[in-house]
Write a protein that binds this DNA or RNA. Structure first.
Length: 407
DNA sequence: TCTGGGGTCCTAGGACCC
DNA sequence: TCTGGGGTCCTAGGACCC
């Protein structure tokens, strides 16, 4: 039986959710952004018409579209909406794999016939999502995840693209390799392909295996199969999403700084946020990474693995600050971004499982920072964080608004 | 008020042990 | 004297994803 895999991709998701919630934004150019020195996370189709794209700075976006409305993202709202959308999909199969906050794979192979076939299911899902949430999505259907994902991108917004196995030669192989972005072929790899004269998916599929092998090692085989349209991995069921492997937070400071107290305070805050999430997910970790971006955009992450698994903010901070002192001092350049993450995680001893809901939520959440998350509402903060002196330092330097802390 | 923030996976090389 | 090979763990760095 030919497999039927669908990829459901919500169109301009964050911006569309905002427009759905606020009638005043409908039909208008909207860009969802974070706070501070930030970028456009998602632009509505009205804004895209002016050339506004994800990744642009606010001034850039405004120069292209003076009427643009910037909206501060509300991740909780998007996560909540995602879960409600999942419920619709789960009516048709339990094989619903969360790929990101706005994309899911569905394996309809064994259930679509109950609802009149995969195309009928796709149409019904689109209709229900539109009726329930006022949101549009693009759906791709194919014999594997790669074809489904590439297909979904071919027709946006509100598209439905079907590529059967028998149509691969006609509809998939001629696609330029640039269309393979999102399935493992990024910008750099695409450039390498082009240097080799590989212009289409078919070219990639036909490339001499020894060359792919020599240039890309293990990945070479995968690329060949992607090119042929035969790369195939199973769709996970909704209850089997991967466990979290690392938890981290980073933050771009309002202004680049060499002030160690400011950097230290931010790092402490980030460690507490990481710790709070680790406790929430009932995990502990052994490898602490410190992430620093300097004013010249030079970036590094240094890791240190310790003997015991830890999950407290104080312990994480101790490890992170040790790395900072060893690797970064004395500071040559002002620091632009500071971050910390904990990997090598395991379920907390004494806690049997990482809760399924939490795991799924984490996966959905991983796209963006919890912009609106109320910091530390239920956690005990280290004394040094709550003493007013720290507020004073951060505020005097213009590096933080009190609101963030008092929230 | 140039360039966010959350992740994953793979590779290469060094340390260390047997 | 000079010296193998396998395995594991750890780290840095790069590429990719949304």
């Amino acid at each position: 039986m030919e497999k039927s895999i669908a990829l459901i991709d919500m169109n301009s998701y964050f911006a569309s959710v905002e427009q759905a919630c606020n009638p005043g934004l409908r039909g208008k150019p909207v860009a969802v952004c974070g706070e501070g020195r930030t970028i456009v996370v998602t632009a509505s189709y009205e804004a895209r018409a002016y050339g506004v794209k994800t990744g642009m700075t606010k001034p850039e976006a405004r120069s292209l579209c003076p009427a643009i409305i910037f909206v501060k993202g509300n991740l909780d709202k998007y996560i909540d909406t995602s879960f409600r959308i999942h419920k619709i999909m789960l009516d048709y199969t339990d094989k619903v794999e969360i790929f990101s906050i706005d994309e899911c794979f569905l394996d309809l192979t064994h259930t679509a016939h109950l609802y009149g076939g995969d195309v009928a299911v796709a149409k019904e899902i689109k209709k229900r999502i539109k009726e329930s949430f006022g949101l549009l999505c693009s759906i791709g259907i194919g014999p594997n995840k790669v074809i489904a994902k590439v297909g979904a991108k071919l027709n946006k917004p509100d598209g439905l693209t079907v590529i059967r196995k028998s149509e691969i030669a006609e509809k998939y192989l001629p696609l330029p390799v640039g269309k393979l972005q999102g399935v493992g072929v990024g910008r750099r790899i695409e450039e390498k392909f082009k240097m080799l004269g590989i212009k289409t998916a078919g070219d990639l599929g036909n490339a001499p295996p020894e060359i792919l092998d020599r240039l890309f090692g293990v990945m070479g085989k995968m690329y060949a199969q992607i090119g042929q349209g035969t790369y195939d991995t199973p769709v996970k069921s909704y209850r089997e999403q991967d466990a979290v492997k690392s938890v981290g937070h980073s933050h771009t400071l309002a202004r680049d700084t060499k002030n160690l107290q400011v950097i230290r305070s931010y790092l402490q805050m980030l460690c507490e946020k990481v710790a709070a999430r680790m406790r929430k997910y009932k995990i502990k970790g052994r490898t602490v990474a410190l992430i620093i971006r300097y004013s010249d955009f030079d970036f590094f992450a240094k890791r240190h693995t310790i003997r015991q698994h830890i999950s407290s903010g104080v312990e994480i901070f101790r490890a992170a600050w040790e790395i900072f002192e060893k690797e970064c001092l004395p500071l040559d350049l002002p620091v632009r971004l500071v971050g910390v993450s904990v990997a090598n995680v395991e379920a907390d001893a004494g806690e049997q499982y990482v809760f399924e809901e939490m795991r799924k939520k984490e996966k959905v959440q991983s796209v963006m920072d919890e912009i609106n998350n109320k910091y530390g509402a239920s956690t005990i903060k280290p004394v040094s964080l709550i003493i007013s002196e720290k507020f004073g330092i951060l505020e005097r330097c213009g590096l933080i608004s009190t609101r963030v802390w008092v929230d």
